[in-house]
Design a protein around this nucleic acid. Sequence first.
DNA 1: GGCTAACGTTAGCCGCTACTGACGCTTGGG
DNA 2: CCCAAGCGTCAGTAGCGGCTAACGTTAGCC
Lengths: 117, 117
Amino acid sequence: MGKPDATDGVLRALAEPRRRTILRLVAHTEMSAGEIAAAFEISRTAVSQHLTVLKSVGLLTERREGTRRIYRARSQGLAGLREFLDEMWGDALDTARQLVEAERGLSDTDERVRRAG
Amino acid sequence: MGKPDATDGVLRALAEPRRRTILRLVAHTEMSAGEIAAAFEISRTAVSQHLTVLKSVGLLTERREGTRRIYRARSQGLAGLREFLDEMWGDALDTARQLVEAERGLSDTDERVRRAG
DNA sequence: GGCTAACGTTAGCCGCTACTGACGCTTGGG
DNA sequence: CCCAAGCGTCAGTAGCGGCTAACGTTAGCC
């Protein structure tokens, strides 16, 4: 419920293979813009634009450190997409999602892993 | 043979708002191509092309009945996307998988990142 | 066969999007 | 101050992707 527009932007952002690669790169660790750009063969400018897109739809977090900008994936940005998936999957997995949400509440970025058992 | 990443096609298909609407329409019931087209204001041709795309990436099932073609969402086509989500979300479902991998002894994942100390 | 209904397919147009190259901005150091 | 490092931003361009209109195809009825 909330904004259907949010899911639209997220899906358009994820439709690009390189943007998905970027997300995977910074899924569990941080990286500077330069480090991320070094992982591709396209120009640094193109990567910067991808970073802008990902950040604008809430899939990326930016932190400044001197002249460098450190990026990190923001898993919360995928919440709307998960809702969309569950809506059409209509499975027992929806129950699991409720358990997870109830457990983590509104806590923010944290790599800690917890069992839902 | 085969496609290295079926998720790519699925995400590109889902990036279109009308295709998502189509999927929602036939998520729990069947509909003919004409009925689906009637739900939009674009031409029937455009809807037919959307149906072709959705079918080509495995998100739709087609059944013929006389001159009509009946469509229905194929939730199995979203399995790969769900894996992608879990990979970056790191929720309880993914945790269970990680535990299994840990028991097997840290086999093959190469997404390990070096941590600059 | 002739005709209609219900679709898919093709050709062409047009807007969007990802790319490159040049430039501007901010930070830190001499 | 000047200069370099590190990035973002601004034109400009090539190509992809979705749209319409016309045409082709299959199924059923008379």
